[in-house]
Design a protein around this nucleic acid. Structure first.
Lengths: 121, 121
DNA sequence: TTGCATTAGATGCAAGTGCATGTAATGTAG
DNA sequence: CTACATTACATGCACTTGCATCTAATGCAA
């Protein structure tokens, strides 16, 4: 029965955290968790990335990610360009505005995580 | 940075497990994870339950749960009756068919969990 | 080069979810 | 008893997601 308990724990933690992130990021920075996650990866990569590359990082389907990138582009946080080496691909690049938004939202994100994944436990 | 890693771990485990559950339960028993979860609680409670009561157990909004129950009822797995003590409430009751479906799906559910929350790690 | 399979990403569509709100039953104050 | 606040659940709506599919660009073989 221990595996069931482990699963329930993951379920509870996921729900609680995701819900808080959605609320906080949405209210304070007009960002969804998926949007922030992509922005976060882009900042850490610090280079253009392919859509598929981001799929592996974030747990989203290719179609969902395609739309997240579209929303981010619409908000001016990333730009989409043609990939020079493979013209089927899209080169996603974070903009200055995107970096600024990420820097602004990062403390909020970390605060939520800290609140829930507190020291002990 | 450890809290971030913990969150990523939850995220990964949640995505992997949820995805597998959706696939397996859907394909083999025509059940979604939410439907199974509610059925599972009903079996363990072994009595009628209020909708709100189930909300606390499963991590769903009241509206989502209302619809899950509606789907389960449509499938004949639970029945909805008026609550005698408070006629605003709904008394959700699992049916024999629901018990059978749960018994049938339980091994699948446990197998998925075992596969992912394996012994070590 | 031509033709076909494959891959990258976009998009139509159906499904599930949360929020805001609606309806009905209770509770409570006057 | 009347009027208003509250509670339980249902429902309209907007949004996100995954699946299937479409288009365009590659890769490969004849």
């Amino acid at each position: 029965m221990n595996e069931v308990e482990a699963w329930r724990e993951v379920l509870a933690k996921h729900a609680k955290t995701m819900c808080a992130l959605e609320r906080e990021l949405g209210a304070k920075h007009d960002l969804g968790p998926s949007e922030f996650e992509v922005l976060d990866r882009m900042v850490n990569l610090d280079r253009t990335a392919r859509v598929q590359e981001l799929c592996d990082e974030v747990h989203l389907s290719q179609s969902a990610l395609s739309r997240v990138v579209a929303r981010l582009e619409k908000a001016g946080l990333v730009s989409r360009g043609v990939c020079p080496s493979d013209r089927r691909g899209v080169a996603v690049c974070i903009t200055d505005s995107g970096r600024a938004k990420h820097a602004e939202a990062l403390p909020t994100h970390r605060a939520v995580l800290h609140e829930i994944f507190a020291p002990a436990r």
